[in-house]
Design a protein around this nucleic acid. Sequence first.
DNA 1: CAGTAACTCGAGGATGCCTCGACTTGGAAG
DNA 2: CTTCCAAGTCGAGGCATCCTCGAGTTACTG
Lengths: 190, 190
Amino acid sequence: MPMSPARRPRADALRNREKILAEADAVFAEQGVEASLELVARRAGVAIGTLYGHFPTRRSLVGALVRERNEEIFGLGDELLAGPPEEGPARWIRAVAEHSARYGGLAAMLAGGLDDEASELHDSCVRMAGYGDGLIARAREAGVLRSDVTGEDVLALTSAAAWTREQSGPDRSDRLIRFTLAGFRPDAQE
Amino acid sequence: MPMSPARRPRADALRNREKILAEADAVFAEQGVEASLELVARRAGVAIGTLYGHFPTRRSLVGALVRERNEEIFGLGDELLAGPPEEGPARWIRAVAEHSARYGGLAAMLAGGLDDEASELHDSCVRMAGYGDGLIARAREAGVLRSDVTGEDVLALTSAAAWTREQSGPDRSDRLIRFTLAGFRPDAQE
DNA sequence: CAGTAACTCGAGGATGCCTCGACTTGGAAG
DNA sequence: CTTCCAAGTCGAGGCATCCTCGAGTTACTG
C-alpha cells in the first residue's frame, strides 16, 4: 500500500471535465441551476454517466462553477477591506448579489448551502460570510453602522437582493439594497 | 345556441375538487409548491387525470388555494387602511410575508405571477399590490415615509421578506423588514 | 327510468434522475 | 514498441414525474 501519491488525472478526463463545466455554465445561465443535466451532457458531447462520474451531484457541479468565479469576488473583498469603511458593505452586497444572480435559483442553493456542512458550496458560503462580517465590523468601528446590525443581517440582505435581482431585475434589487442600507445607518429610526 | 346558463357542477365533482384542494394544501405545506401532483392525487384518492380535469396547471391549483386564504388577508388590509397610517405598511408587509411563506416556493411563484397576465395568480397579485399602494400613500401623506419610496419597493420588500422567511425562518425575515422600513423613513440618510 | 353531458379513470409517451456493469483507452513500466 | 490495467467512458434501464386522451362510468334531467 504505497499511499498513492494522487496521480494526476488522464488527459481525456480533464478535457471532458472542462467541456462539461463550460456547457453547464451556458445552460445554467440560460435556464437556471435546475436545468436538465442530460442536456448539459448532450451539449458537452459526453454520456450522462461521464457527467455523473465527474460531478456526483448537481450541487457539486454548481459548486465547481461557483468556485471558479469566486477568486474574482474575493479579490474585491480584499480591496474593500483596505478601502474606506463606509463604502465597503454597500459595494460588497451589490457585487455578491450580481454574482449570485448569474444562474436562476442560485441564490436559493447558496442560502441552503450555508447550513449544510457536507455541501460542496459550504466553503464558498462561509468565506463569503466572512468578508461580510469583516466589512461590517470595520463600518461599525467607523461609526457608520447601527450597533445592532449583525453579519447575519448582511447575509440575509445579500441573499434577498440576489433573489430579487433574479426575479425582478437589477433596478429593484438595487433599490432594496439602497433602502435597507439606509436603515442600517446609526441615525435610522425604528 | 342557448347560451348555456352554467349548470352547477355535479356533486361528486365538487367533492373531488374539495378533497384535492385539502390534500394539495397539506402536501404543499409539507413539501413546497413543486411537490408531486401525482402524490396529491393519490392522497386525495383520485386519479391523476381527475386532478388535471379540475386544475389544468400547477399554477391554477396553487391559485385556487391562495384565493381561498386571501379573504382573510384582504380583511386585514381594509382594517389597516382604516387604522393609524404609520403602522399600516409594517403590519401589512409582515402579514403578507407570513402568508406567502406557507408553502415553500410560493414567493417565487407569486413574484412571477404578477407579470404574467394570463396566470391564475395575477388577480390576487394585483389586488395585493393595490393594498400596498394604498397603505404607503397614506403613510406618505402622514409624513412617515420618504417621498421616493414606491409601491414597487414595498412589493419587492414583501416578496424578499417572504422568501427570506422560507429560507431562514421568521426571525431573520422580521429583522430584514425592520431595517428596511427604517430605511423607508423620511429622515433616513443615503 | 332512459339518455346524455359531465365526470373519472389510468395506460402510455415523453422527459429527467441516477446507477451500474460492460467496454475502451491513456499512459506507465518493461 | 508492446503489454496491461486502472482510470475513464458509455448508455441501457429502473424509477419518478409530467401531462394527454380515449374509453368507460355516473349523477342529474326530463
